[in-house]
């Protein structure tokens, strides 16, 4: 009994399993932390911790959405395209005024919600495989973006938005605070709320949830919409981070978010894992890449090591899942 299949309860066996697992992860993390301190002291510089948290927070926010979709046995490969589009929307709609920024951020999030809703409708009501649907909407979003921008997105990222990633509390940037807040809110909704019960039931067995009166179609649409919205929000943070109008800024976040969620214990098959784990997965993945680069090894070795670590992590998790 290793996976956190049952929902976490403070006073139950399932909760003990979760606690054990968290302890295990923390233990491994502690060992790694000490080893890193000895081997790579520059890891603990304020500069590095800050850039680490910054990068992890962007991946973290989009991973939260991806985790939700994975929980209902889905997959969203359109998050990268949504993030890029979100950045373009922010750049083209916002002036330097706070009002303009607010409008632009709202528009970006609405765009994400819209794309997510489309994904959800196609998956839930048309029964198309999530992989196909979201790959298609990704192409649609990128295509429309190109039509709209002619490859040259107009505007600029307003200076006032840079604070989201450039300022913060000590080494912790505001974006990391945002990510943690979102993760905690989602966690409470999933673990304590009736919403979570419906989500986990649907992810574990659509048939059982349906027969119990859960409107699984609507629920799926909501989950995909939420994922789209979170991806758009991640895009907003990304725009603050990059500070440059790059029409393809989100590239790579689709697969990275899936890897981070799965490393964080969210099962591909649905119904298993949680958003806190997923957020930790995003942090872990970022740390691994950071350490690889910091260690100064050659770029080819980095590529191989990065791939190997993801494969080993996934294999380890899959093994535990099978053993259960």
């Amino acid at each position: 009994m290793t996976t956190t299949a049952g929902l976490a309860h403070a006073d139950t066996g399932a909760a003990r399993a979760v606690a054990l697992r968290v302890l295990g992860v923390l233990g491994v993390a502690a060992v790694a932390a000490v080893a890193t301190a000895l081997w790579l002291p520059q890891f603990y510089t304020a500069t590095n911790l800050n850039s680490l948290l910054l990068q992890a927070s962007i991946l973290g926010i989009v991973t939260l959405g991806q985790a939700l979709v994975l929980l209902v046995a889905g997959l969203d490969l359109s998050v990268a395209a949504v993030m890029s589009a979100s950045l373009v929307v922010v750049a083209s709609l916002s002036g330097e005024g706070l009002g303009g920024i607010a409008v632009a951020v709202l528009a970006a999030v609405l765009l994400g919600l819209g794309v997510g809703t489309l994904n959800g409708v196609l998956v839930a009501y048309r029964g198309v495989a999530p992989f196909i649907v979201t790959l298609g909407t990704a192409a649609l979003v990128s295509g429309l973006q190109l039509v709209y921008t002619r490859g040259a997105p107009p505007g600029a990222i307003p200076e006032r938005m840079r604070g989201l990633t450039q300022d913060g509390i000590g080494v912790v940037p505001w974006s990391a605070v945002l990510c943690v807040a979102l993760a905690v809110a989602l966690h409470v909704g999933l673990r304590r709320g009736t919403y979570g019960r419906r989500v986990y039931a649907t992810g574990t067995s659509l048939g059982v949830a349906r027969r119990a009166g859960v409107r699984t179609d609507l629920l799926l649409v909501g989950i995909y919409a939420l994922c789209g919205g979170l991806a758009a929000l991640a895009g907003v943070v990304l725009s603050s981070y990059v500070g440059y109008v790059d029409g393809a800024a989100g590239k790579g976040y689709d697969l990275d978010s899936v890897a981070a969620a799965v490393i964080g214990g969210v099962a591909f098959t649905g119904g298993k894992g949680g958003v806190l784990g997923a957020a930790l997965g995003a942090l872990a993945l970022t740390v691994v890449l950071n350490v690889l680069v910091l260690s100064g090894i050659g770029s080819h070795v980095q590529l191989i090591a990065r791939g190997a670590i993801i494969v080993v992590a996934l294999a380890f998790i899959a093994h535990r899942a099978i053993k259960k």
Binding site: Y195, R197, T204
Partner: peptide, 28 residues
């Protein structure tokens, strides 16, 4: 496949069709 959520606990299974009764303000 249609009756029980096997990986979930008895109380979670029982609660599923009775969420309104066991919750307040959306919290279980």
């Amino acid at each position: 496949d249609e009756g029980a959520l096997l990986p979930h606990t008895i109380s979670e299974n029982v609660a599923l069709p009775n969420l309104r009764e066991v919750s307040r303000g959306g919290l279980v």
